[in-house]
Amino acid sequence: MPSEIVHRLSPEEEELAAKRDELALLEAQLADEELALASAKADLAAFEGLYLRRVGVLYAELDEWNARLAELRAEQVHTPEAQTGAAEARSQAEESYSATHGDAAEVEPFTPSPELKSLYREAAKRVHPDTATDEKDRAQRERLMKEVNAAYAAGDVDGLRRVLANLENSPDAVQGAGVGADLVRVLRQMRQLRDRLTEIAKEMAGLAGTEIANLKAKADAAGAEGRDLLAEMAAIVQGRVNVARQQFGRESDERYGK
């Protein structure tokens, strides 16, 4: 009866196995965090679109009336202040118009399916640039990660599947020679992953600090009380639009007659 060949792990090999387990955990954690970040960004973009469509357009309209009023007044009083005022009001109106009619205003509500989320998590784990072992690998992974993020934001399940399928076909990077070299590489990967986790935390904090996120938080809180904050805001701005429009009407009647 042949005796079993028991491969006894050297201490270095044991250490490597332990670090590999740790790396796998970190990879999973990072994938979750990337998912959370991508979701937060997409949520925010969707809210931004909603805000621009429901409230932003009213600000743009308000600015338009104000610009017309300022121009009307500048025609009557030819002071430099009036001219500057009119020019400023006009450029303000243009800013607001372009902000409310750009791509940001087109973004639709974002509701990722569980499938989309799990595909994203899987893809993020597999292609994450910070698991790269060399520069060439990293460049390729960064490109892939961009694709993955874009597919997620667009809710493109097939896109994510395609990325994953292509990965299956590509041979894994050849592992380095020797346990020592492997251990060094794993440790380096772990540091890269931890750095990225810190970065994600910073990015999340940065997102939460933006005005639009602040507004979204208020709108969510109001929504929990059964209120529609965007509708309330729209009503406020609409009131101003009405006033500005009527003021313009009166002043232009005065100038040009009814």
Binding site: V55, G56, A99, E211, M233, I236
Partner: peptide, 17 residues
Amino acid sequence: LARKDSAPLARRGLQDL
């Protein structure tokens, strides 16, 4: 409001609120 993103409009909304 020089930047063309929506942040100024969001800020305006917050201030008005």
